[in-house]
Write a protein that binds this DNA or RNA. Structure first.
Lengths: 312, 312
DNA sequence: ATGAAAGCGCTAACAG
DNA sequence: CTGTTAGCGCTTTCAT
């Protein structure tokens, strides 16, 4: 546990000088600098970020609230955010909430207590207001991977779900499907609503029929790939063929979606990029001492494979 | 930004008293306690963990080094570790290294700078010595999901890879396979070696033949499910049938492995449990001010599905 | 049972 | 260009 003072003594200078070479916050004579650097290396000194945070009133840490870590989309989002943060000297505190309101509250409390400089929320339970307690304390927040109306102080980096659903319905309509269904997870998640709504809107716009899955739908779009695959399983167990009897579309393009026994038609959104941007915007805002006002929408592309085909 | 002092003033007591009610570290009169609690609630006060850490010389934070966040096994490990940590009031700093030595070094430096109370390493590049710099500074370390020889100060919570490979080879041998191969990822990861070695040992023990994949093997075991699935794809594109011509075994039992178009025979290890135990051991050690000396091995079970069959 | 005072390791004026 | 001096918000003896 060597401190700044130890380094200073060893180099025969004062603490401020050491501090100055570390962050080069002020000019230091080349020879002095060399002595200090040597002392740092010999002592294996790592500045105590805790002390620095206390003094400077910034922790160089970001909070990241994730609903389902096993979903590859979120895994990539975490990866992107974490890498972007580390490149800028920021640490990332992750909190997996699994969309449980109680866990969400606790996570936010912990992040506030740790005085993180900003928080990325990658998904929350439906009625959640957790972003408000953050914003009211002056902590910038960006929603990543799901949009939300409302608060002007909220940054958003999102996939273009509406555009994606437009593409999905266009594709399906082109194959002659007239009765379409959307299935979503029981998980009480906000993003589910936007995809469902976008899908419904695109269906209505073409005068097609929106039905419940099972109630004679010839094409089913799922909220994500995992659900699409479950749906295919269920259909096949019921003796219906995909895509001959029913077409199925997923969302996410998980690695296995392209497997040749699956060949899932799906939507690809770039989780890593979204995570990266979210972290960048947050860090910029934190440095400027403000909120993230920007709202970015990243395109998603329909990947047509073989789980969709002409309507029977 | 309300501080302990603000609360104290509001409640008409001293800082020490407030501190005592918060952590109930000393007896406080019931009436005083009520007043303090009221003040805390009214002010929405959250203790500044940064200041607490500086004074108490513990950060209540754990570092978690992960090689591949998109692998569901690691995603679960992170989940388990993170939840166990939060239950005990600890935060988790994740670092995704993607097995790049340079990134690993940086991550460790960041964790040291932030004075984490312990580090879970879930995978590192092969020759890595990153645990040593940690241990030498007195930071307890536990290796999770991959074993390692060596340092006595190192805790280990691992899957029984050897036992798993024994089961795999037993299964394959029972189906009449004599020429077996093991394929591993290019990723320079330590765990790959143990599985490969365990497989080779089990093969040798039975007097079977270990060959390269492609060189006439009738059964192939892969380092993980993703690789097993790639292997199946490749084989089928070459016109060989699975399992009729070649049997394939995976490792991890990812959610999609059970899909009926895949029905992958694989090994299931409980990532979430391993992450949870790793965090628990680490926190116990941190509290006791020592290292984790314990080494735990968690069983893995072979799940037989339909990607394996009798030798041709 | 409660309060006063001294730091934890660092940064940020301000002097020299 | 370098050193001195105050704190940041909290915990922790030690008095009272």
């Amino acid at each position: 546990v060597t401190t700044l003072f130890d380094v200073a003594r060893r180099a025969g200078v004062s603490k401020s000088t050491v501090s100055n070479v570390i962050r080069d916050s002020a000019p230091v004579a080349a020879s002095t600098r060399r002595r200090v650097e040597a002392a740092i290396a010999e002592l294996g000194y790592h500045p105590n970020v805790v002390a620095r945070s206390l003094k400077s009133r910034t922790t160089f840490a970001l909070g990241l609230v994730v609903p389902e870590p096993t979903n590859p989309f979120y895994a990539l989002l975490v990866l992107g955010a974490e890498r972007a943060a580390h490149e800028r000297g920021y640490a990332v505190l992750v909190a997996n909430t699994e969309c449980e309101p109680e866990t969400e509250e606790e996570a936010i409390g912990a992040l506030i207590g740790r005085r993180v400089d900003g928080v990325i929320i990658a998904g929350v339970s439906s009625g959640s207001r957790i972003h408000e307690s953050l914003l009211d304390r002056g902590v910038p927040v960006v929603l990543a991977g799901f949009g939300a109306a409302g608060d002007e102080r909220l940054g958003v980096v999102d996939t273009d779900d509406e555009g994606a659903m437009e593409q999905v319905v266009e594709h399906l309509a082109g194959l002659g499907h007239r009765r379409l269904a959307f299935v979503r997870h029981h998980l009480d998640e906000t993003s589910g609503e936007r995809r469902a709504a976008g899908f419904a809107a695109a269906v209505a716009r073409r005068g097609l029929e929106l039905v419940q899955a099972g109630a004679g739908a010839t094409a089913i779009a799922a909220h994500n790939d995992a659900l699409a695959i479950e749906t295919i399983d269920r259909l096949e167990r019921e003796g219906r063929r995909v895509p001959d009897d029913v077409s199925v579309v997923g969302f996410d393009d998980v690695p296995l979606a392209s497997h040749q026994r699956l060949e899932l038609t799906t939507v690809r959104s770039d989780g890593r990029e979204i995570g990266r941007r979210a972290a960048e915007l947050l860090i910029d805002a934190a440095r400027a001492g403000g909120f993230v006002s920007r709202r970015e929408v990243h395109p998603a592309v329909l990947v047509v494979r073989r789980s969709t085909g002409r309507a029977a």
